[in-house]
Design a protein around this nucleic acid. Structure first.
Lengths: 165, 165
DNA sequence: TCACAGAGTCTCGATATCAAGAATCTCGCC
DNA sequence: GGCGAGATTCTTGATATCGAGACTCTGTGA
């Protein structure tokens, strides 16, 4: 079977036969899959009245374990956004009652963001739906293929970050 | 070697030992790789004074072949954005002198967007830098591994779009 | 003890996107 | 020959992001 990327590469090959397009075969597929995955996540979250950026923040707090508290700086590192974005996100989550913001007793510059019980219920529900949706999306691949794919993606990601460093 | 996703999954496993997290092993890596890839593309394009959304539009026109003309509707389908976004993009590309906008002689509702010679030079240069960067990012994988990865991603993408349909 | 480099967070302005609806035009069908 | 459903593009308003700089506080070294 041919996919959209095969068509993409064929078009380029026709217009630019001088170029080596093999890298596109891998990386264009990664980008396109990520786009489709974003849509699927959005869909899975909608039943829990959560959007993706909200889930990202709530999930980072949930993963941290009780008492479900992290600094904005830690949330920035977990979610890979800028500080201005995180301030804005925490504001809106506080307004929705899913997290609280309090002063860090041990550092007066600092702030602590904590999941509320409602925030915890929300993120636990959304995670369940997300995993259901993801399993469905992966159902076309055998278990072996999934393992193999995860391994190759791990290798690729590790060499990415090595090159960036 | 362990990567960020191994750590992510380990955190969830500690907090939610009741859940099957295997899908994350694949799909979280896809999302994270796409993020890193976006940064790398931005970097590769900067030498040509182009940003990613500009490249996406110019590349669609370039791939179409001479006379490098497509309708906004065709560009929307190629780049997967909404019509409002495309209107805005074409406006700015016209302003930069990289494309022209003209009336479609055969359909008075329609518009035709055409690459200028400067637009063509720009996209050809940017494509070269992009492919160089992508090859560098893939250099940690053997040729066989790259082929295998491309094949698995193709299968996954095809089953995605089947499920959506 | 007091500057000061740096950490941590927030503010502000610029930018880009989407969704929904408006405006215009085409074409099949009665 | 003109009605109306649908195609095509643009407009508008809401939303979210980033980047740069401001502000406050910490902790080290003179």
């Amino acid at each position: 079977m041919r996919d959209e990327v095969d068509a993409l590469v064929a078009s380029w090959a026709r217009e630019r036969p001088d170029l080596d397009l093999s890298a596109m075969q891998v990386l264009s597929r990664v980008s396109r899959l990520a786009l489709h995955l974003d849509r699927a996540r959005k869909e899975a979250f909608s039943a829990h009245r959560v959007v993706a950026w909200e889930f990202d923040v709530l999930a980072a707090l949930r993963r941290a374990g009780a008492p479900y508290t992290l600094s904005p700086g830690a949330l920035i590192r977990e979610t890979m956004v800028t500080s201005g974005t995180m301030t804005n996100r925490v504001d809106r989550l506080v307004h929705r009652g899913l997290v609280t913001r309090s002063a860090d007793p041990s550092d007066r510059r600092g702030v602590l963001v904590t999941l509320t019980p409602e925030g915890r219920d929300t993120v636990d529900g959304a995670l369940g739906s997300l995993l259901d949706a993801e399993r469905r999306l992966l159902s076309g691949l055998s278990e072996d293929e999934q393992t193999q794919l995860a391994g190759l993606l791990r290798s690729l990601g590790l060499s990415f970050t090595d090159l960036a460093a």
